[in-house]
Design a protein around this nucleic acid. Structure first.
Lengths: 237, 237
DNA sequence: GCGTTTTTTCACCAGGTGATGAAAATGAAC
DNA sequence: GTTCATTTTCATCACCTGGTGAAAAAACGC
C-alpha cells in the first residue's frame, strides 16, 4: 500500500539510494511551493512538475497530500529544535553560577540563545531554509490547524525557553512569560519570513532579506519588552 | 457582464435594497471561511452554502473569486484606517505643546493610540471582526501577495505612526522605526488572530480570546522594545 | 543470464473547481 | 395589468483535483 516504508526487506536493493535523492527533491519542491502559496494553494501536480517527477510518485513516497506537507514540516523542525535546544543549553552552561568568572544569565542572553540559531541557519543553511521559515510563519498564523501543528512540533523548545527565563526572573508570572513569548514569536516569524512588506513600506530603507538588521534589533527589542511586562506586573501586584 | 455596479439606472427599483443585505450576508460568510482556511482553502460553493445563496449569485455581485476576497478585505479596512487615524490624531492633539497643562507625547502613548482601536473594535465591534483580524494576520504572513496587499490597504496609517514616533524621538533613524514596526505588527496581528496556540502552550494559563490580557501587556512591551532599539542605535552611532 | 523487489510510468476515475449564459422570478413605475 | 430593469435560479461547461491500480522499467542478489 503505502510501501517504500521499510527499506530493510529481504532481497531488494538497499544501496545507491537514488530514491532518497528523489525524495529530497520532492520535499524541496513542495517546501518552496507550500511556503509561497500555502497548503491549499498548491496541487500535487505542481509539486511533481517542479520536482520533475510523475504525480503518482509523490503518493508512492508520501501518501496523501497532507502527509507530504507534514513531511516537509517535520524535516527541518527536528534540525531546528536540536539547534535551539543546544544553543540554550550552551548558554545556561556558560553562565553556570558554579563556573568561576561566568556572569549571570540575562533575559536578553536567553532570548538571543533562543532566536540566534534561526537567524544563523537562515543565513548559512542554504536557500531551502528561507522557504521553510515562510512556511512556519504561515502555519503560525493559521487559525484552523496552525496552533495544533505548531504545538505538535515546537512546544518543548518553547517550554525550555520559558523555564529558563523563569530562572533568570523568578518573580515573573508564567502568564506574562507566555504572552511575551506570543509577542516574540509573532515578530520573529514575520521577520524570518521574507514577505517584502518592509521593503516597500520603508521605501528602500529596509530589506526583508537583511537578517543582519534583524539580529541587530530583535534581541534587544524582545528583551526590553519582556522586562517591561515583568516589571509592570510585579509593580501592579 | 459584471452588472450590479450602477444602481442609478433609469427605471428599475432603487428602494428596498434587499440586494444589499444579501451582499453583506455573502461578505460575512466569505470572511469567516477565508479567515479560517485561507483564500485557496475555500470554494465559492462553500461560501454560497454558508450564505444560503446560489453559487452564481456570488459571481453576479462580486465577479471572480479574488474580487470577492478583495471586497472582504476592503470592507473593514476602511473602517479600521479611519478609526486608527482618528485615534492617533486625537492623541497628538491632546498632547499639543500649545495646550496648557498637556503632557508631552510618549512612545507608549503613540503606540497605544495605534493599537488600541483594533482591540476595542475586536471586543465591541461584533463577531465578524475577529474573523477579519485572523484574515489580515494570514495575509500579513503570505509571501506571494501578502506584502503587496497589506501595502495597498494599510501603508498610509503606518506611515502616520512612524512620522508621529519621529516627532517623539527625533533622533531615531527611520530604518529603526520601520524594523520596530515590523516587530510590532507581527506581535499584534498574531495576538488579534485567535489561533489557540497560547491556550495549549500555556496549559490554560492564557487564552487567545483574552484581549484584555493583550491590552495589559502589548503596549508596554512594544514601547520598551522601540525605546531599546532607538537607544542602542544612537549609542552605537 | 534469472528471479525478485523496488522504483517509475501510464492511463484513468469519481468528484469538485470557477465560471457562464439563458431562463425564471421579482418588484417598482406607469 | 403591463412593462422593463434587476435579481435569483438552473443547468451546464471545460478543466482540474487528489488519488489508484496495473504495467513497465530499473536495481539488485545469485
Amino acid at each position: 500500500m503505502t510501501a517504500a516504508k521499510t527499506r530493510v526487506s529481504g532481497r531488494g536493493r538497499p544501496s545507491k539510494a537514488k530514491g532518497l535523492d528523489l525524495k529530497e527533491t520532492i520535499l524541496d519542491a513542495a517546501e518552496g511551493l507550500f511556503a509561497r502559496h500555502g497548503f491549499h494553494g498548491v496541487t500535487t501536480r505542481q509539486v511533481a512538475a517542479e520536482a520533475g517527477v510523475d504525480t503518482a510518485l509523490i503518493h508512492y513516497y508520501f501518501g496523501a497530500k497532507r502527509e507530504l506537507f507534514d513531511a516537509v514540516f517535520l524535516r527541518r523542525a527536528e534540525i531546528l529544535n536540536q539547534a535551539r535546544e543546544a544553543s540554550m543549553n550552551a548558554y545556561v552552561k556558560a553562565h553556570d553560577p558554579e563556573t568561576p568568572g561566568a556572569g549571570a544569565m540575562t533575559v536578553e542572553g536567553v532570548i538571543e540563545a533562543f532566536i540566534a540559531p534561526l537567524l544563523r541557519i537562515s543565513q548559512d543553511g542554504g536557500p531551502g531554509w528561507k522557504s521553510y521559515f515562510a512556511l512556519v510563519a504561515q502555519v503560525n498564523n493559521t487559525p484552523a490547524w496552525g496552533g495544533e501543528t505548531m504545538a505538535r512540533f515546537f512546544d518543548p523548545v518553547v517550554h525550555q525557553l520559558v523555564e529558563t527565563l523563569k530562572i533568570v526572573r523568578p518573580q515573573a508570572e508564567y502568564r506574562d512569560l507566555y504572552w511575551c513569548y506570543q509577542f516574540l514569536t509573532g515578530s520573529m516569524m514575520l521577520s524570518l519570513s521574507e514577505t517584502g512588506r518592509i521593503d516597500s513600506l520603508s521605501e528602500g530603507e529596509c530589506h526583508s532579506s537583511d537578517l543582519e538588521a534583524v539580529r541587530a534589533r530583535l534581541f534587544s527589542y524582545c528583551a526590553a519588552g519582556f522586562e517591561a511586562v515583568i516589571a509592570k506586573a510585579s509593580s501592579a501586584a
